[in-house]
Design a protein around this nucleic acid. Structure first.
Lengths: 208, 208, 208, 208
DNA sequence: CATGAATGAGTGTTCATTCAT
DNA sequence: TATGAATGAACACTCATTCAT
């Protein structure tokens, strides 16, 4: 079973290039997201929490959505490289998929705020599917897709199903297994969920 | 392969109890949902489209969310009975599940507006998970869950996985297989999707 | 010499169709225009002066420019019919032109607020030359143009010059004769200005 | 017919007294005026275009209007001497006036940006009529006025009209003949316009 | 001489909501 | 039952301006 991801991926590199105000604003939004829905967060909230002037937000971010995407990007970025790294060296498509699945469960489990935003909120903001955040998400999704395709090519995975559908089912399965926990704020075990999901997807569902 | 659902489930019973104003308002929202996001629809929009006064909406609905739920309920209601009806008489858990899966694909396929609302929008409205709409959705989910449990009890479905997780994976799989089509407005074939999803879930994913 | 225009053309017909709020708002803007530049007038000013809510302005006028044009239209409308009426029955192009010139001097003389707006302010608002106000102004300009053309056709006015240019010179002459008075808030005599303008334009400028 | 003004009047003397920042700022505003209305130009625009810091503008110009006037002054200055030069040596008031008129048409024709600003925008800025720009403009106007007065004194021009009014009519005529071209961005012929304007103003308008 | 960072006050605009008729 | 009129409170966003470095 995979071990937890290296303690605290440094989410925020205090580039001396990033002005303190900008940093404070992003931090403020991150904090506020823990308290309330993004759509309920106002510029006044953000400015107030950050301790900066409202106008400053506009200086660094063209609008509130842009700010959110910036925050999400900063959250998602580190996982991008991570994910590819984690599966290199693993043998067999199923092992890789299992690992990828586990990582997803772990990420959603360890940061509930972002889990809620990613699983529930962000998707129905206008323009989400053109956003950079979506592109990052798609990047992960494509890692899964590539793994599937490779597995099919190598004759490990049955190739009488659409690889895209398989990927969608994996992702959908992951997300819906997390949802109850996210909504009703309960902890879950990434290990156990991975086990169940893989059992169901990889094996015959019929008894014996 | 299952055939398409009986043409035009009567979505709207003109209860003589339902005053014309109320009917017009609900109709107006339904029409508007085809044009734009729910969150972008204002009372003025609704009143304008319905051809009634803004104030009148308050007579019948306490707020816009309430109105939305009312509309969704009206949409979802017919399917409730339907679903149970469709699977009674079917032999075997897998057959029943397949049928249920197919129905979901078919519903989302045939009404894209509601698909978009249900799959993307409604979930992140505050209070959704306490709403009646959610209860109706849960009702369908429970039909699936019951079918799974029955299948396990009867020794058809392997019982070393959590039935809830299995249900979540099924639902998540369905939804994520529909999502690309909903987002990018492409048609899909409920038959083909059902086939893929069932193959993946029910059988061994390993080649041979 | 022409006599002053009939006392107080009824600028505002209290159509019972026009809601009191709307009327108050337009009145408020008209009053404010006497005090300060249009560009310095805020919605708060207008709402405050009118004694109504800021939001109400938006109900009746889509933006402040629209409100201004509405006010200008109401001011200009009455003169539209007037002008054509005044010259019907007059004999000879030069008589007609003289009358039209006099009317312009008189209008600008009697309402300095609108004179200032029309001669100085309104022209450089974005979209002015697509506005309804401009169309109304053009209507007057076209009456002059038609009179010129008719005069040329009838052999009264020399036809070796462009009628459009002649019109522009007449209008430009009128406006620039008014300008000093408008800017430095001095009264002028429409009669005297008409006399000078017509002498210069109609006759040989050379002595003898 | 007068020939075009000497190619490229040097608009900008790189006084060693003028610091590079100041020069860049003025250049930036001049460039921006070609793109959009002055009123739509912000300090950020100017600083961005100039490639300097916003704060720097304050070092050199007390406010944006002041900056505009500075730019206009720089534009208008060269024509001041020019104009007097051009008419010295000419015989007869009418010849001089014709030349002055032609020069105006030519200036407005050759620099549309400044034409638009001078003919449409600048006049309704608060304080314009106290500005240095206005004084420069008045200077030109006075050259015309002096020429008229001289012509009257010498018995060339009829003296039964106010010289000021005559000047206003000339200037108004010039401006209004240019306006359509400026607004709708069409080229015009200074020669043809001069011909028409002089014919109308100097001669009898009556046929024969 | 020039900059990066930050500010404060205001702007137009939006909308759900109320109420007398 | 339904409407026209009006309201209040907030909201995102803008921008000229200042100041320490």
């Amino acid at each position: 079973m995979p071990k937890t991801l290296p303690d605290k991926i440094t989410q925020q590199k205090p580039d001396r290039s990033s002005p303190p105000g900008r940093v404070k604003i992003m931090k403020a939004l991150r904090d506020l997201l823990g308290e309330k829905e993004f759509s309920a967060i106002t510029w006044a909230d953000i400015a107030g929490t950050a301790g900066v002037n409202e106008g400053l937000i506009y200086k660094y971010f063209k609008d509130s959505r842009n700010l959110l995407h910036e925050v999400l990007k900063e959250f998602l970025k580190p996982y991008a490289d991570r994910m590819e790294l984690e599966i290199t060296g693993l043998e067999g498509a199923f092992n890789k998929l299992r690992k990828l699945i586990w990582i997803h469960f772990d990420i959603y489990n360890s940061d509930r705020i972002f889990a809620k935003i990613l699983l529930l909120e962000v998707r129905n903001y206008p323009g989400y599917f053109q956003s950079e955040t979506y592109k990052l998400i798609q990047h992960y999704a494509n890692i899964i897709l590539d793994t599937i395709k490779e597995g099919m090519r190598k004759g490990e995975i049955r190739d009488d199903v659409s690889p895209r559908n398989l990927r969608q089912i994996i992702i959908g399965g992951i997300e819906h297994c997390c949802l109850p926990g996210v909504i009703f704020k309960k902890k879950w075990s990434p290990d156990a969920l991975t086990e169940d999901l893989c059992t169901i997807l990889f094996n015959d569902l019929r008894k014996n």
